[in-house]
Amino acid sequence: MNAEMISEWIAGGFILLGTVLTLLSGVGLIRLPDVYTRSHAASKSTTLGVLFILLGAFMFFWIDEGYFSIRLLLGIFFVFLTAPVAGHIICRAAYRSNVKLADRTVRDDLKKYMKAE
């Protein structure tokens, strides 16, 4: 087993991990009860999954083909920066348009601040 094969295995492992995380977030989207928990599943694990897939692709092209793709690094930075903000914005829009929380919810700290305004 030479260095190139090891690097291919590492890159493949990253990509597999990323796809599994993305699949998990898909399962979370179906099984969780309301918008807020679903956005929790969608924004967190999909972001990490996409980051792992991009990192695997970056490592593959870097080690195997000797091509240092700065675009993939920029993509990793950009997704890491913007995806959680998108989740935040969607959640806040949902809360402001009075989307109901799940029945199992025990407390709602944001309610008194929204009432106070």
């Binding site: 675009r71 920029l74 950009f78 920066l81 913007t82 903000v85 935040h88 914005i89 402001r96 305004e117």
Partner: peptide, 23 residues
Amino acid sequence: MKTNDLILQTVTKVATFVIVLFS
């Protein structure tokens, strides 16, 4: 209702430079 766009505006300031550079 008071609007509070701090997170969106701060991230926009960084993301805009990335998008313009990439374009």
